[in-house]
Design a protein around this nucleic acid. Structure first.
Lengths: 245, 245
DNA sequence: CACCTTATGCCAACAGGGTTGACGTTATTC
DNA sequence: GAATAACGTCAACCCTGTTGGCATAAGGTG
């Protein structure tokens, strides 16, 4: 198995090898992310990855336990990048807002990586570190455990969900995910006005709107709701619907 | 092409054919959804679909232009089911809340169909009908076009995003998407307390929370925010962040 | 130094994926 | 009855992830 290989190879610096190749987890992840960004999900295959690395496709399996494992590593890497440079001020609301925007921005910088948002939850290092930070922040702010967990989940879910959908709007991946502006305009503007008056009337608006993000506003709403909950009752309030505004 | 085939075959009732097979768009979609629900994304392949239909895999291509086209049809079918039975009362906020919950529930009834949420936007009949209804509702309520489009998008995005993530929490699909309770508990509870005090302290809560949905609360927040915007200013307010509560 | 174990890379091969084209049969239409 | 479209099968193609065997390099130990 590649488990022990991981630990040993990680702490060692190799000079050169048979064909002069020097692969590593970091290099493979970096290359995979590049392929994903430049050529979309279709571009990230075992064979293409091997080609981009100048190595045989099967070599990747010396470092990762299959393609699924690699994908989890990619998601973990992105989470690590999102958290990198994040500094907590002690103001949980401000800190979470900052982190949320960082996660969102990181995924938007790798639009094709929207696939990865479904691959969360793995017990990998970067993710767990981020989770620890978030939970610690919430508990430190005075949220009881159930509330902290609830907010923690809502926070992560929201960030990843919006990132995935925003990214899907920005990119032009495989036909099944096609959602770019051109498609929208072409699809909606071509509808007969008689049968679809509402859509045709706002076809251009629909197309133009595909580029903007609704996440910051939604994030602020969620944080405001959490703050109101904290201010109202120090004790936990269960899972009931929060009616505000 | 299958385009003309579609129209002609749809309006006709065929008694029997060569081997006694009577395929149709509806039957194929129904079977594909069943495969997806029972065996997950891995279970929905051209070959398995052919097997389940008792037909040759290539036969599907007489009805759909490739697997992508079929997947879009599945998403369209689900949207149609979600909207079926939906009755508008004229109260846009109440109606949208109802529709949102319907969409959410429909996708939760087909957990494995979370993949389909990424396949939105296609110009297919059921979807366009739903879009028309939503946009008509918002414009009728007095929202100017830009605001209506913005809310329309936020509404759909939110419903699909939460459905996808909630469904991912409920199911146990391929390794890359693994996110079930067992995994959560096993993953997080096994962490050393010394290095991960926060996570280990709430490990059970984390696992238990995977089954509940945060969508209704988020939906209410969004609708409340939209209502506040409508009450405050009849004219459109652009894309600025809404600070409420 | 020799020696053995581990790490690392390549190669060939397998099962299974989507998709296509030719072909035959059936159903419909004129 | 003849022509045409629809429908289903079959064999084949190229792609995918993945594996086992083999060769070489590296690292540690005598």
């Amino acid at each position: 198995m590649a488990k022990k290989v991981v630990q040993d190879a990680e702490r060692r610096r190799r000079r050169r090898t048979k064909q002069g190749l020097v692969l590593s987890h970091a290099l493979i992840v970096e290359t995979a992310l590049r392929l994903l960004r430049e050529h979309g999900p279709q571009g990230l295959t075992a064979r293409r990855l091997g080609l981009a690395l100048g190595a045989d496709p099967s070599t990747v399996y010396r470092y990762f336990d299959g393609m699924d494992d690699l994908i989890l590593a990619l998601a973990d890497e992105l989470m690590g990048r999102a958290v990198a440079g994040w500094e907590t001020t002690g103001d949980w609301r401000r800190d979470l807002r900052d982190l949320g925007l960082r996660i969102h921005a990181t995924y938007l910088a790798h639009p094709q990586a929207a696939v990865l948002t479904a691959a969360r939850v793995s017990g990998r290092s970067q993710e767990i570190a981020a989770d620890e930070a978030i939970l610690g922040l919430l508990r430190g702010a005075g949220f009881p455990d159930p509330a902290a967990v609830r907010i923690y989940h809502a926070f992560i879910d929201q960030a990843l969900a919006f990132a995935a959908l925003d990214a899907a709007s920005l990119t032009l991946p495989e036909p099944a995910l096609r959602a770019d502006r051109t498609i929208w305009r072409a699809t909606y503007a071509r509808l007969p006005e008689r049968t679809h008056p509402n859509i045709t009337a706002v076809a251009d608006l629909l197309a133009a709107r595909m580029n903007s993000s609704a996440y910051p506003a939604a994030l602020d709403l969620m944080l405001a709701s959490a703050a109101a909950e904290l201010a109202a009752a120090p004790r936990d309030g269960g899972n009931e619907v929060v009616q505000s505004v």
